[in-house]
Amino acid sequence: MGIVYLASLLTGIGCMLLLDHRFRLFFWRDAKAAAIVTVVGVLFLLGWDLSGIALGIFLRGEGAIATGVLIAPELPLEEPVFLLFLVLCTMVLFTGARRMLAALPTRSASEDRERENA
């Protein structure tokens, strides 16, 4: 039971990568840029977590679904995996939303004036 959370995170990462692959949104659009963004994002958030831990703001909660493995004081093994999922999910959603918005038909200024006058 102690691996459920980690397995769920890895499954979520796999699902995000499948979605990314299907629509060529992030890693399958530009792997080098995606890798840089992912590493920088995870390191930033990990630094944020470590700062919060050092200040006594973030504490590790006990949970039956977690592995219980710590990679640093108050920093469970699942945290960097969660941060990876968070960055990947954010970038897939962002690039997908950009693509959807770009596909919307644009209105010309004359169409806007016609709507205002109607």
Results as ranks from 00 to 15, higher is better:
Val92Thr: 06
Arg115Tyr: 07
Gly52Asp: 09
Leu18Gly: 02
Arg98Glu: 10
Leu46Val: 09
Ala103Tyr: 01
Leu18His: 01
Gly63Ala: 15
Arg60Asn: 10
Ala34Leu: 08
Asp49Trp: 04
Ile57Met: 07
Pro73Asn: 13
Asp112Phe: 00
Phe27Glu: 03
Gly47Ile: 03
His21Ala: 15
Gly56Trp: 00
Ile3Pro: 04
Ala35Pro: 09
Arg107Ser: 14
Cys15His: 02
Gly41Tyr: 03
Phe85Arg: 07
Arg99Gln: 13
Ala118Tyr: 01
Ala109Asn: 04
Leu10His: 01
Phe23Lys: 13
Glu114Tyr: 05
Glu62Cys: 05
Asn117Gln: 15
Phe23Val: 07
Ala66Tyr: 10
Met16His: 09
Asp20Ile: 00
Ala33His: 08
Ile3His: 10
Phe23Tyr: 13
Val92Pro: 00
Leu55Phe: 14
Trp48Met: 11
Leu104Pro: 06
Pro73Tyr: 08
Leu70Phe: 05
Val87Pro: 04
Val69Met: 05
Glu78Val: 06
Arg22Gly: 06
Ala7Gln: 07
Phe27Ser: 03
Ile3Gln: 09
Thr90Lys: 06
Trp48Arg: 10
Asn117Ile: 14
Trp48Tyr: 15
Ile57Val: 15
Ser51Trp: 14
Phe27Gly: 04
Leu18Lys: 01
Leu9Gln: 13
Arg99Met: 00
Ala102Thr: 10
Val87Tyr: 09
Ser8Leu: 14
Pro76Tyr: 01
Leu18Arg: 01
Asp112Ala: 15
Thr67Cys: 05
Val81His: 05
Asp49Phe: 07
Phe94Asn: 00
Arg113Pro: 08
Ser108Glu: 11
Ala31Glu: 09
His21Glu: 11
Leu77His: 02
Val87Gly: 02
Gly96Trp: 09
Ile53Ser: 02
Leu86Met: 11
Phe58His: 12
Thr95Ile: 06
Thr106Asn: 10
Val39Leu: 00
Arg113Trp: 12
Leu59Ile: 11
Arg107Gly: 12
Val39Arg: 00
Val87Ile: 04
Ala34Tyr: 08
Leu86Val: 08
Thr106Phe: 14
Trp48Lys: 09
Gly12Tyr: 05
Thr106His: 12
Arg24Trp: 07
Lys32Pro: 01
Met16Asp: 07
Leu86Cys: 03
Gly61Asp: 12
Phe82Arg: 01
Gly68Gln: 04
Ala97Trp: 11
Leu45Trp: 09
Ala54His: 10
Phe26Leu: 08
Leu104Asn: 11
Gly47Gln: 04
Gly52Trp: 11
Met100Gly: 02
Gly2Cys: 03
Gly68Val: 04
Pro80Val: 03
Arg113Asn: 09
Ala102His: 11
Cys15Glu: 07
Leu10Glu: 09
Ala72His: 08
Arg24His: 15
Leu19Cys: 06
Leu18Pro: 00
Gly68Glu: 01
Val39Cys: 00
Leu86Phe: 13
Phe27Trp: 04
Leu77Tyr: 05
